Amino acid sequence: MKRIVIASGNKGKIVDFQAVFKEYEIIPIKTLIPDFDPEETEDTFHGNATLKSEYAAARLNLPVISDDSGLSVKALDGAPGVYSARYSGIGATDKKNNEKLLKALEGIEDRSAYFTSVIALSIPGEETRTYEGRLYGEILESPEGDGGFGYDPLFKTDEGVSLGTISPDEKAQISHRRRALDELRKDEELFKILTNS
């Protein structure tokens, strides 16, 4: 089976990748670089995704993809954005982040929001390429379901699907990450290099 190395230690993201790339063996970075933990110092999804994939590709001398993603809420001027995973500060958890988001939106009618995923592909000796996908919807007033991870239980798509209530396979058909990965697949030659490594 062909394999894809993913520069991510986030278990939820790994599940998402596995649901999209069923025909490939997904290799989480920590199985190859146990101490993988580059500091995300950039202020854009593109910057942080590139930072992680380039770090891993250089360490392994292999093609690697990474993901940087997050939630942007219109009423909060795009927050939490690149800080989505650490929105509630030191010791942030999904529960604390969701609670902070709901509190920030108390009394606000416009709850429109979108998820962004940026996938970076780093191939040793080549310039890193990035691919972006978005999923538009709104923030619910309370969590629905216990599926997914992060803000999924609070997010309902424009098509009326609450991400916390669907399976990983169903999410893999519509998610922002799926849309970014579909853009990556369109670069057929680079994708072939990634999967033949």
Rank of each mutant, 00 (worst) to 15 (best):
D37I: 00
E109H: 12
K96S: 14
T116K: 13
K74Q: 13
G150P: 02
G81V: 05
M1F: 09
A75P: 04
Y24N: 02
K2L: 03
E138G: 08
V82Y: 12
D67N: 12
D187V: 10
T50V: 06
P63Q: 07
I90M: 11
A7N: 09
G150L: 03
E42R: 15
D37K: 04
P28T: 02
E109S: 15
T130L: 13
G160R: 09
E144L: 13
I29W: 07
S122P: 11
K74D: 14
S117T: 15
G12S: 03
T50P: 04
L102F: 04
F191N: 01
F45N: 11
K95N: 09
T44M: 07
Q173P: 00
Y114E: 03
F155Q: 15
K52E: 06
P38H: 08
L32Y: 09
D43N: 13
N61M: 09
R129Q: 09
L32S: 05
L194K: 00
I4H: 01
P63I: 01
Y131R: 01
A85W: 09
I174V: 08
I33R: 06
L62M: 10
R86M: 06
F191I: 10
N97Q: 13
V161N: 00
G107F: 12
T195W: 08
T93Y: 12
K192F: 00
D187C: 05
D67H: 04
P38L: 04
L154Y: 10
K13A: 12
E189N: 02
K13L: 05
P143V: 03
T165G: 02
G145Q: 13
Y151S: 11
Y83A: 06
S175D: 11
D77N: 10
N98S: 05
K95L: 13
I14Y: 05
A85I: 03
R3P: 02
L105N: 02
L181Y: 02
F149K: 09
T44Y: 02
E25D: 11
